[in-house]
Amino acid sequence: MTEEKIKLSTQNLNLWFGNKHVLKNINAAFAENKVTALIGPSGCGKSTLLRSFNRMHDLTPDARIEGKLFLESLDLYDKNISVTQVRKRIGMVFQKANPFPKSIYDNINYGLKINDIPQGDRKGIVENALKESYLWEEVKDELNKPATRLSGGQQQRLCIARTVALRPEIILMDEPCSALDPISTLKIEDLIHSLKDKYTIVIVTHNMQQAQRVSDKTIFMYLGDIIEEADTAELFNNPQKELTQNYISGHFG
């Protein structure tokens, strides 16, 4: 096995919402240019773990975090680093497609503007991001149309385009297909395959088939703990723990 570089990691990560202990001493590592799937029953803390990387919990007053998170060697919760820079380097695609109530073009342009990308470069970047997200052919003639008029699958691809336009190093995806039809889902899975060369991807999914189709590694979580982690094929074909076995064979979830 070749030596893989760890892009994202946690050390003894604990997280509480108020008194509720949601993440329990998580030690996880995510390899560069790999797709890692987070699976586990609903409410086990997958989204919470994902959102702790781009510091989305900063917005929740009663969230409390202990332990460390790293982007390579950078301490993500260091007092002296800029949270907006962290979020630019660690992009996120949300469970429910959430385009801004703006035009298709402005949806992508917004992030470029915010991050001070020169005006002259933006048009090309928007086009490129749409192409990378397999959306360009469908929308190239109506970039000024409200993004909310797109179909659900197109909206989610637009959200991915919005994220890749900023050239993040990591893309976090929280059940990006959970609200989509099977065809749109396959398109997004194709897209994930093509993005893997450039980005490190962490994807939460409740769909076992999807985890097997898109991911290289899989982490199985249960009640705030990591129960098992392995190469995806290994984890699904030869789970070491009974809990994992029960979950992937659909005995609960």
Partner: peptide
């Protein structure tokens, strides 16, 4: 919706 705000913070807006 909170999702608009999250999307904005998500691309690095303050």
């Amino acid at each position: 919706p909170a999702s608009y705000r999250e999307a904005s913070y998500g691309v690095g807006a303050n």
